[in-house]
């Protein structure tokens, strides 16, 4: 079982990555996202400053070369470049983890519901409906106050818990369409187990859709995370995330525009590149596109 599953993924993924490499736009977008991620990882070594060190001589310093504050400082004299990169690191890792969590749950939930059909499907989807109808913010507030405020694990769970609902619905709809296709029946006639049909025939065929959605869900998570941080439920000072940096920058928009422009610019570049990547991924995953 394991070696043939390996063969399958090798076929699907190696073909997809070959097509992806041939796509110039995707390569550029991937390069930019990769560079940003690399910078975020290396953030502590990029600049002599640390994220919470205060430089009293240079409060609200505009970008320039003075004392290695290349992108300026904030009201408290903290280096904006370092804080943005660390914010990026935090936002990106939380979003990617939350995205992966919600995609995994959502794909499996939706595919199982769609494939099983009948009563199981009805119950599973009603459960999704119930979660949808809960006031999400209220739930998050309750969760974060019950547990330690600002805990990253709690934030991750809160983000992941909402993200998978849409994925599950989307994957279920796709699965229902797939189920009517003859190759699913052919697999059943061959004696493939339900789990085999799910993992070998349904999931690979929805991955293209999911890949596009994944590149949308990551920026969505970035936004959500910053929203929660803005409400004081997410990342706490002095730690930085793109969200609370943008919020802080917006307060100083008129006197010190770079405080907004630097983190917002990073966010915009990140979002555009992720979206371009999503488009190319979808094409790469679909052999019929050629």
């Amino acid at each position: 079982m394991s070696d043939s599953a390996g063969a399958l993924t090798a076929g699907l993924w190696s073909d997809a990555s070959r097509r992806l490499r041939a796509d110039g736009r995707a390569a550029t977008a991937l390069g930019v996202v990769g560079a940003l991620a690399l910078l975020a990882v290396l953030a502590p070594w990029v600049s002599p400053w640390s994220y919470d060190s205060l430089d009293w001589q240079h409060l609200a310093q505009p970008p320039g070369f003075a004392r290695a504050h290349w992108l300026g400082t904030d009201r408290l004299g903290r280096d904006l470049l370092v804080r943005t990169l660390l914010g990026l690191r935090l936002s990106l890792s939380i979003s990617v983890l939350a995205g992966a969590l919600s995609l995994t749950i959502g794909v499996l939930w939706g595919a199982v519901a769609g494939l099983a059909g009948g009563r199981l499907d009805a119950w599973m989807m009603r459960f999704v409906d119930v979660l949808y109808s809960l006031p999400y913010l209220f739930v998050v507030i309750v969760v974060t106050t019950l547990f330690r405020r600002g805990s990253l694990a709690v934030l991750l769970v809160a983000l992941g818990a909402v993200g998978w609902l849409t994925t599950a619905r989307m994957v279920r709809a796709e699965t229902l369409a797939l189920k009517r296709r003859q190759f699913i029946e052919a697999a059943r006639a061959l004696g493939v187990t339900p789990a085999g049909i799910l993992l070998r025939h349904v999931v690979p065929n929805v991955l293209g859709q999911v890949a596009v959605y994944a590149t949308l869900i990551v920026p969505q998570m970035v936004l959500f995370e910053s929203f929660l941080s803005f409400l004081g439920l997410g990342v706490q000072e002095p730690r930085a995330s793109l969200g609370n940096l943008i919020y802080g920058g917006a307060q100083e928009m008129e006197s010190a525009p770079w405080m907004l422009l630097v983190p917002a610019g990073v966010l915009v570049v990140l979002l555009v590149c992720l979206n371009v990547l999503g488009d190319s991924l979808r094409d790469a995953f679909d052999p019929r596109e050629r």
């Binding site: 296709r181 003859q182 190759f183 052919a186 006639a189 061959l190 004696g191 493939v192 025939h201 690979p204």
Partner: peptide, 23 residues
């Protein structure tokens, strides 16, 4: 029943439709 399917095979009306497009 699944084990028995080894002996019982079927081919379908719509040839491309009965083949998984990702394989």
């Amino acid at each position: 029943l699944r084990r028995l399917r080894r002996d019982l095979q079927i081919i379908f009306q719509d040839p491309p439709g009965s083949l998984d497009p990702r394989m």
